[in-house]
């Protein structure tokens, strides 16, 4: 389905590496929809973007649902650990 389902967040003091090297990130969109490349009908997709630098300033991932859940757990553990640093 084209789920349209999209979450958008601002991303600050963060960088991504795209086709033209590193660039500062501004936003991220997270959505469950058709992937371009991954082999499932639908995937959890994340686009890290910098609109000021054009459409090509994009770091994209297409994650299977299981991989996305594992990523959430890993992020949670990492962020909690970071609080104790």
């Amino acid at each position: 389905m084209c789920t349209y389902s999209t979450e958008k967040l601002d991303v600050e003091r963060s960088s991504g590496k795209g086709a033209d090297g590193w660039f500062p990130l501004r936003t991220a969109t997270v959505y469950y929809d058709h992937p371009v490349h991954a082999p499932d009908d639908h995937t959890v997709n994340i686009d890290f973007l910098n609109p000021e630098r054009g459409p090509g300033a994009r770091v994209a991932v297409e994650l299977s649902l299981d991989s996305a859940k594992a990523l959430i757990e890993a992020l949670q553990v990492t962020v909690e650990r970071a609080a104790h640093h």
């Binding site: 686009d47 054009g54 459409p55």
Partner: peptide, 20 residues
């Protein structure tokens, strides 16, 4: 308008981020 000449997937990502 959002992404003239961009790769289709980059253009779609830009359009989605702008609200479709």
């Amino acid at each position: 308008r959002e992404a003239p000449g961009a790769a289709p997937d980059d253009a779609a990502a830009t359009a989605r981020a702008n609200g479709g």
